[in-house]
Nucleic acid binder design. Structure first.
Lengths: 236, 236
DNA sequence: GTGTATGCATGACTTTAATCATACTCGGTT
DNA sequence: AACCGAGTATGATTAAAGTCATGCATACAC
């Protein structure tokens, strides 16, 4: 982790983050109070069970939010990308953090102290509305996830996960919409699906020999999206 | 379903619902706009995929929120009891409903139209804050649920579910805190745990012969809470 | 180059839980 | 009382996925 300087008023992710709803004056306050850091791939920004001291705003990179069990096996709860926040759920609920945030790419992330964020949330109705809506959306996603884990087979969930990763990690530069533009080890994929690493490897091999996907280096290419959709929705 | 009349200003669940944050004037507006109905056990209040037209406030009874798969097998996403709301997630996110609400007891439920609720949410900062906090809390619970489904065995999840039901359906009158004060068929329990009905029946028999629980008519009594907690937390 | 670590791949085997089939039990009806 | 149906219970069998073991490929260090 390495401290760097970023100005909120000219932040390049302002458009997608809550800062876009700030007045210049508010952005000034946030800018003065925040601290930005660079994290390497693999480093964690915060840890499960800790008390949140503020929120984090991703200005570059990608992170995974995970919860670990007693054997150290982690479950990936969700991902966050440029422009998204972390830690606000725990902060607003006034509860400890329920997940650990770990960078899956080199990441730049700004920390905004609790009181500055909470005040902004109270004063600025637009930000408030944005957060409220975003939380409702996320809760809907979580509900779908609960059903998926409870009712779908591993095979169905893997197909679903591949399509999710394709959508979430679209390569902005190449516009190559069938390539999953992130390299996750098989273990991470297993930790999204909620299965063993070997099972993911086996099923990916199957998908490959069925010409549904292909490997390009460490990345996965979707060859037959509609077939994967069919598999993913076989039972639900 | 049968229409009845209830006055928000004197509503007996006002203390636990968002109405407690209303001014008298606001309560008057809600009162005038809302409609209350009685639903029998088994009836549904709204359905998955429908567009929400307002929110529902439970003033008596209990409901389950479910999502069904293609075979009609349902997954119980969560429960709601007196004083809780339904449908606001979809309304605020401006999305279709993701679950069906079905009464598991005879229920009295008030409907508040979309525009009245959204205006209240915008005008009354306390209500807004309450909703925001409650959403954050629910999202944390959903995250824990995701981990549980992904990493715990059925046996662990059943133990967890029994403890959850005990806490959620505390009998207010008898103060008998070890009795699960709701009668859910085994099938519903299976639809919380995310397993087959037969598996639940088998495991409950096991728990019973291990003296962890006992049956009292159709209700379940927790005999050894700490043992169930140990089972529930064996891996996570 | 060689050695070594890490992740990927595959086989063999075990465990868990689903499915299918068949009774049993209890409450309500006729 | 006899009957019925829904929910509960239990056994037998099958299917799905986890675990353990081993080998291979690639990347990196020295």
């Amino acid at each position: 982790m390495q401290k760097i300087y970023l100005d909120c008023k000219n932040c390049d992710v302002k458009a997608v983050s809550f800062l876009s709803y700030c007045t210049d004056e508010e952005a000034e306050i946030v800018s003065a109070a925040k601290s930005c850091s660079h994290y390497n791939k693999g480093q964690s920004i915060f840890y499960e069970d800790n008390i949140p001291l503020g929120i984090y705003c991703l200005s570059k990179g990608a992170i995974k939010l995970t919860r670990s069990n007693k054997d150290g096996k982690e479950q990936i709860i969700r991902f966050a990308r440029e422009g998204e926040f972390l830690g606000y759920r725990a902060l607003i609920a006034d509860e400890p953090l329920v997940a650990t945030a770990t960078c899956i790419e080199d990441t730049v992330c700004c920390f905004v102290p609790k009181n500055v964020f909470l005040e902004l949330l109270e004063k600025n109705a637009q930000i408030n509305k944005h957060m409220l809506k975003s939380l409702c959306h996320d809760l809907g996603i979580a509900d779908e996830r609960i059903q998926s884990l409870a009712q779908k087979s591993v095979r169905e969930r893997l197909a679903e996960t591949l399509l999710f990763l394709q959508k979430t990690f679209q390569d902005d530069k190449t516009q190559d919409e069938n390539l999953i533009a992130v390299t996750l080890p098989r273990e991470d994929i297993a930790n999204i699906v909620g299965t063993a690493t070997e099972t993911v490897i086996r099923l990916l091999s199957e998908f490959k020999s069925d010409k549904l996907i292909d490997m390009e280096g460490k990345k996965i290419r979707i060859l037959n999206q509609s077939a994967l959709e069919r598999i993913s929705h076989a039972s639900v």
